[in-house]
Nucleic acid binder design. Sequence first.
DNA 1: ATCCTAGTGTGTACGGTGTCCACATTGCCA
DNA 2: TGGCAATGTGGACACCGTACACACTAGGAT
Lengths: 207, 207
Amino acid sequence: MAVGDRPYHHGDLREALIEAGLTLTRQEGPEALRMREVTRAVGVSPNAAYRHFADRRELLDAVGQRIQHLMVDRMVALRSGTGDRATQAIDGLRAVGLGYIDFALGEPGWFAVAFFPAPGSRPEDAAPREAPPYRMLVDALDEMVAAGLLGAAARDGARWACWATVHGFAGLATRGPLAALPPAEVRRQARRVVEAIIDGVCRERPT
Amino acid sequence: MAVGDRPYHHGDLREALIEAGLTLTRQEGPEALRMREVTRAVGVSPNAAYRHFADRRELLDAVGQRIQHLMVDRMVALRSGTGDRATQAIDGLRAVGLGYIDFALGEPGWFAVAFFPAPGSRPEDAAPREAPPYRMLVDALDEMVAAGLLGAAARDGARWACWATVHGFAGLATRGPLAALPPAEVRRQARRVVEAIIDGVCRERPT
DNA sequence: ATCCTAGTGTGTACGGTGTCCACATTGCCA
DNA sequence: TGGCAATGTGGACACCGTACACACTAGGAT
């Protein structure tokens, strides 16, 4: 059953490939995910991967989704539930925004895999509307509405506005000019930016 | 002097390579810039490019800077100078934001080259602080301060907040889930998002 | 218990890429 | 007019993604 000590069939190769992809992309980002290297890391022939993923991109997408789940895991760990409903709601929204940015700053390679996988990736399934971090944001905004801090009519626009701001800041901070600033300053600016968009979104009147 | 009809020396090969890079990346984005194809388009041997650019990335960066200049060219065309100083200032800021987004929507390939060149690009020189579109934003915010619509202390933070929002929206709209929405809806949301961040930034109190 | 089939991994090969090296050609300046 | 620095060429190397045909193995039907 085995010529070396490893059986011919790997057991759960699909999972192993995704995990190898995770460790490979953590430092260098999506470019570091090369079929030959992933399979090499798992100790398997390059073509074996094609039994589980049609493409390099399909594997990369799978890794990206896994990373999005890691992301929400870290984000939920930030929530603190004290105070009345209004402060809880606003704290929750803040936590989502800062958590998103913190993850990007702490794991720039992974963040790039999750949200900038490949320049030519087809956008419709790149980061579907059900992206877990996006759901967290949606929930946080619903809490704001329930607490009376945000008009129900403004909710839809607020989703895009909040996501855009936080996402853009993360992009500028990881692969843009903000990366040149010292990390403490970056975090300080992150807090200001999050406050600004929360303010702007709460003031928004329906159009 | 010529074996075919083209002289051995190209004249301005560096410029020709950049222009070929522009046309190659316009549709498909940064990935479409391949050394062999660029040189092929110019009618020159692949290695000739290495007399003018150390790397593929160096050429890609040059193309990206060129695109940033194209971007401001289109953005300045949007400015309309009517009304009093305050309305001019706020209209200018709006125009910068919407112009940024419009360019990204109209030229997603180029936008990606300018701001998401390669996942592994070293961020310090990726989009230096003097990026032309960023300078436009800085100027617009200075006008806001001069018009008394923005506190001088808040200006620094406002720069990052505005850029992050607009940049993030462009990213979501070109390679993210917003790309799935109909273009008219995207533009509508763009207007709301820009309004929201302007509101938020103007309300900001110093920290 | 045996066979067969579907699932999974392997070997080989092809075309493409970025980039290094040695060499060819040319324009320019002393 | 000679020579030198700049510029373009040809060939080669290592690597990549992936298609094709084949090998092995597990597990259900007989």
